[in-house]
Amino acid sequence: MLSYKTIIAKNIRHLMPPPIRNFLLQHPATFSARGEKWREENPYRNESQEWLAPGDSKYQFGIIKEFWHLHWPFIAACRDLNVSYKIIDISGPDWLDVLKKSGCDAFLCRPSVQYKTWKEMYDEKLRIFSAIDPRIIFPDPEALWIWESKRRMHYWLDAHNIPHPKSWVFYNKKYAIDFASQCNLPIIFKSNMGSGASGVIIFDNRGSLQRHITHCFSKGYSTYRRIRNDREFGSVFLQEYLQDVREWRTVRIGNSFFGYEKGSCNGLHSGSKRFFYGQPPDEVLHLTKKITDIGKFMSMNIDIFLTSDGRLFVNELQAIFGQSGSREICRVDNQTGRMIWDKHSEKWIFEPGTFCQNYLCNLRVETLIKLLDTRKNISATPQVTP
């Protein structure tokens, strides 16, 4: 039976006008109730923290615990695929020993991003552990480090010469105000963390933009999805506004590629919940493959703007992304499936089927198994002495 807090958290979005709803969502009590709601929706919350697959399981995976139990699709995937697992909590001071002595062959992780400090904890600990231990963390720590940070994503895209909308990051209020006094309008403000357009504001008034910048540097900024005191201070992220663009969401998990077009609402594609299906354009898939090959990313969502004159710009990189249950996200001629790059014909091939079970976590677990199998085969290959 759902608690009264869970009932409130589930219905607050639908019962109140947006300004009141957003104010209440940031309240500490509501934030706590939202966490309780998600934990109660974990179908495995009352089961053992370790599960041994019946029969023969080649590997045991460590599933790193997420604060609101959003790790549960990894549990479902391991059970579907008959892979043993163990839930691992790295939030304590003994986290390093917990990982070292877990006995797991690899780790699956979906970091918490509801609170800035939580995300920082995962970023710090996963990067430190990956530097001293050869076991695979999936998705990889580099991809998870980029996830939910507009600044890091911008720096990464810049460093690898990937086309993306012009962006400016300011750590000095005066420089930001001076820029705002002469930049082209409209211009977009984005919070460093935030999904579903929750931290996106389009400014077409110079005075409003400058007041917002002052607010960010003096009082800080927080989206309605985060607790009120979890504010971003001392920096501002601004991005050029591209008119009349289409946006494709593409996904790579292992060597499977997916894509659909995102509709827009009030000038924004993120959070519109409008989807259009069809075979993704080859140039969009090519760019997705190029970026993920450069980063060696085996679990990545890339949102790509397509301008009216055919140019492509990357809008988002996300190792984990919003996905509704087992909704199939690639459909061609009313068939669900995935896109595969055929290196022999050098063409994209559509393969019909269902591949998105448990929020795509089945495919993530299958990809991790293949990575471990490949590593095992390489280590077993006899080395020829020259």
Rank of each mutant, 00 (worst) to 15 (best):
Ile7Met: 09
Pro17Thr: 09
Phe23Tyr: 12
Phe23Cys: 07
Phe23Gly: 09
Arg39Pro: 00
Glu40Cys: 01
Glu41Trp: 00
Asn42Ser: 01
Pro43Gly: 12
Arg45Asn: 06
Trp51Lys: 04
Pro54Met: 00
Gly55Pro: 07
Tyr59His: 06
Tyr59Ile: 06
Gly62Arg: 03
Gly62Leu: 01
His69Leu: 14
Ile75Lys: 03
Ala76Arg: 09
Asn82Tyr: 02
Asp89Phe: 03
Gly92Leu: 03
Val98Asp: 11
Val98Ala: 12
Ser102Trp: 02
Lys125Asn: 09
Leu126Val: 01
Leu126His: 02
Leu126Met: 03
Asp133Leu: 06
Phe138Val: 03
Lys150Trp: 10
Lys166Glu: 14
Lys166Cys: 07
Trp168Lys: 13
Ile177His: 05
Ile177Asp: 09
Phe179Glu: 09
Ile188Gly: 08
Phe189Gln: 10
Phe189Leu: 13
Asn192Gln: 11
Met193Ala: 15
Ile201Gly: 02
Ile202Arg: 13
Ile202Val: 12
Arg206Asn: 07
Gly207Trp: 04
Gly207Ser: 11
Thr214Val: 04
His215Asp: 14
Tyr224Gln: 07
Arg225Asn: 14
Asn229Cys: 04
Asn229Gly: 03
Arg231Met: 10
Gly234Ala: 10
Val236Trp: 03
Leu242Gly: 13
Gln243Asp: 13
Arg246Asp: 15
Thr250Pro: 05
Ile253Lys: 11
Lys262Glu: 08
Gly267Arg: 00
Ser272Arg: 00
Lys273Gln: 14
Lys273Pro: 02
Phe275His: 13
His286Arg: 05
Thr288Asn: 11
Asp293Asn: 15
Phe297Arg: 01
Phe297Met: 13
Met300Tyr: 05
Thr307Ser: 15
Glu316Leu: 02
Leu317Trp: 03
Gln318Ser: 13
Ala319Asp: 05
Arg331Val: 06
His344Phe: 02
Ser345Gly: 08
Ile349Arg: 05
Thr354Val: 14
Thr367Phe: 00
Lys370Thr: 10
Leu371Ala: 14
Thr374Phe: 03
Lys376Asp: 15
Lys376Ile: 10
Ile378Gln: 15
Thr381Asp: 11
Thr381Asn: 14
Val384Tyr: 08
Thr385Ala: 13
Pro386Thr: 13
